[in-house]
Design a protein around this nucleic acid. Structure first.
Lengths: 388, 388
DNA sequence: CCTGGATCTGACAACGTTGTCCAGGCTCTA
DNA sequence: TAGAGCCTGGACAACGTTGTCAGATCCAGG
């Protein structure tokens, strides 16, 4: 695991260079394929190429100033709404801006000012419905603080998470909200030290001391399983994700705790861990339903697993109880309605983002680990009695 | 509608300044609240404040160079993996980089190089499950081209869309994928002229000539309604969004076309347009089901409306047929399964992003309007016979 | 020992913006 | 009318990086 840290530093920091190659090469200049491009005299090369790969030759404040017949700084003042410019001058400058289609270059601004007014969000998968509201909540908070949100998906790949987080740091985001894919975040240490505000959400940071905002995965799962036990079930299956993922591990722990509290020994055949693709989840569920001691209820460890399990249960002849972790849309319209342990993705995101900005304005200093409660929503599937 | 353009140019371009105020002010310097801050001598002010609001004082290439005992440019070469550095020198530089926790400042890099290797995505609502896969697809393409994706939600507000798009342009994204909220995009004209690659998705650009990637909303809706007609329905309701939204208008047009093709006159009481919040959609649906000439089938104009209509239909005593535009998760598990006209959000996003990069590398020049076909997925609700 | 070439290194000037500071013009008061 | 004070505008130097170009170093061959 340690290998990642030294590795990264050694890897060329620039995986983005492929992009650069796409800059339209000036085709008007004939090139000697052999040794270089000595065919064309310097002067032409210079004057000809420069505008080509620059922002399509956008006007700068200097251009605006020239056109308006004022000084550079005056244009800056107008653009930023600073005081100290006569209405008449302002009008002239404004006219020039409109005429030239000038837009301030924020890269230069950031370079000069030192703050980017943007924060980054590294999440697992934008296409997962759980992360939509979370991302949206973070964006709303960012917006309220006048910051732009830059986000990317790690696709559950620790290396990609690291790559993305560091790329965002290189862009000098003021802060970073990370939904971890990996379990070692020491790569963020130099960044933290350099003052990049950082909050981990949904899953805790690994091997570093940082702010975390989590759901009470353990308690939620325990309550969900206890709910099934309260309705008379004893043989309860658990279908979950890889235990190396913190949330999955916690939920598994909650399941075990509830079973233990009720004095029910857990059989191995009741558990499916780390199987995620629908086809294999399906097979795992079918097995625990048809094994030597078939389960009468299933606790599904996350939204995607729940959906697959619902499909399997719909095909069974006998009713099987189900409680899922994470709410899913239309859960109330199914027959029976799906009982779930719901986490509030939006609150998770909002809380994290707010902590981030409190770090930024200095209100917050010591890293904390916050756990938000989950909520059991009964809709029918979790209240089915065992069909033995 | 025209007002927006001149307005924007006049609005201080900088709604982000609230952020700047949050920069920790140097508290060690006593300040005369009256007139300014003349209390402290120049020298201290300078040397003391500068590091404070700069990126938490991050090391620069200069620092690395000093520590490694090499020139600035040599560090640059190492960081970018350029040739022409002895292994020994490279090692020394690398050591200094690790020791100082240096990370290249991409703002400066962008300023110098002129390309940002990032593209922007302005979408309507990240929390809408339709946009998750679309956004993800755009990101994958961007990634394949070595670019970072920056995105934001317009929340269906034209002003916010414009604000966001222009903010992204100010950051000098190389290109922009826009899911329009408004219908006037002339504000993008200077940007287009300046060479910002731009593709509109899901809805067409308004009042400018630009690349668009759309679903065949008209054809899809027409087919969906024709499907209901083919199953014997004549009194068919339409629940849709505001016709000022292009997709909504097209789907309405498709509905009308199908009805006209079948020679069925449409009654006003069968249509609900522009009502979006669940409570009012519910009332609208109930009305068309209980009016003087009650509908026997409903065509729902988008995923959110469909969900609400499903709820309403579930409460009806008689079966009512339903076809929805946009697929929804779990549609197949409901009783009956929900028949939908599905658009492929991922393909929409991928196509748009690919066109964007083709614009960037110069392969693409003339703006086009691409319409992707939709697909009718029959699951039961659309095949119910009319219950008169 | 010198020359020529190849290789490696560093000084310097941009990139577009903003902060600082000073100059010039104005108004107001003594 | 002079002097003080304010307002407006502009010159200039940074910010951290990269492209250019020339200088330094090294080695082989004469």
């Amino acid at each position: 695991m340690d290998r990642r840290i030294p590795m990264d530093r050694r890897i060329p920091m620039d995986r983005r260079i492929p992009m650069d190659r796409r800059i339209p090469v000036d085709r008007r200049i004939p090139v000697d394929d052999r040794t270089g491009r000595r065919i064309v005299p310097e002067t032409i090369r210079r004057s000809d190429r420069a505008p080509e790969n620059r922002y399509g030759n956008r006007p700068t404040m200097k251009d605006v100033a020239a056109r308006a017949g004022v000084g550079l700084k005056t244009v800056s003042r107008v653009v930023n709404g600073e005081p100290g410019v006569t209405p008449e001058t302002e009008r002239r400058v404004q006219e020039a801006i409109d005429a030239l289609g000038f837009r301030r270059n924020d890269s230069a601004r950031v370079l000069r000012k030192g703050r980017t007014a943007s924060i980054g969000l590294v999440l697992e998968d934008l296409a997962d419905p759980f992360y939509g509201p979370l991302s949206r909540a973070v964006e709303e908070v960012a917006r309220a603080h006048g910051a732009l949100l830059i986000n990317g998906s790690s696709a559950e790949d620790p290396d990609r998470e690291q790559e993305l987080a560091l790329a965002l740091c290189a862009r000098r985001v003021d802060g970073l909200v990370i939904i971890p894919a990996g379990d070692d975040h020491r790569y963020m240490e130099p960044e933290l030290k350099a003052g990049v505000a950082t909050v981990f959400v949904d899953r805790p940071a690994g091997k570093i001391d940082a702010d975390c905002v989590l759901s009470d995965n353990f308690g939620g799962a325990r309550d969900g399983v206890a709910h099934l036990i309260a309705h008379g079930h004893r043989r309860i299956g658990f279908v979950g994700d890889m235990p190396r993922i913190h949330t999955a591990a916690e939920r598994l722990r909650g399941y075990r705790a509830a079973m233990e509290d009720a004095g029910i020994p857990v059989e191995d055949s009741w558990m499916s861990l780390g199987v995620t693709d629908p086809e294999r989840v399906r097979r795992a569920a079918e097995e625990m339903l048809s094994g030597p001691s078939p389960v009468t209820a299933i606790f599904a460890g996350n939204n995607r697993v729940t959906v697959t399990v619902i499909r399997v249960l719909a095909e069974q002849s006998r009713p099987v109880a189900l409680v899922g972790f994470d709410d899913i849309e239309l859960a109330d319209l199914l027959q029976p309605g799906v009982t779930v342990v719901a986490q509030d993705a939006a609150t998770l995101g909002r809380t994290a983002a707010e902590r981030l900005f409190r770090q930024l304005d200095g209100t917050l200093v010591t890293p904390e680990r916050i756990e938000l409660p989950t909520r059991l929503i009964t809709r029918g599937s979790g209240e089915l009695p065992p069909a033995d």
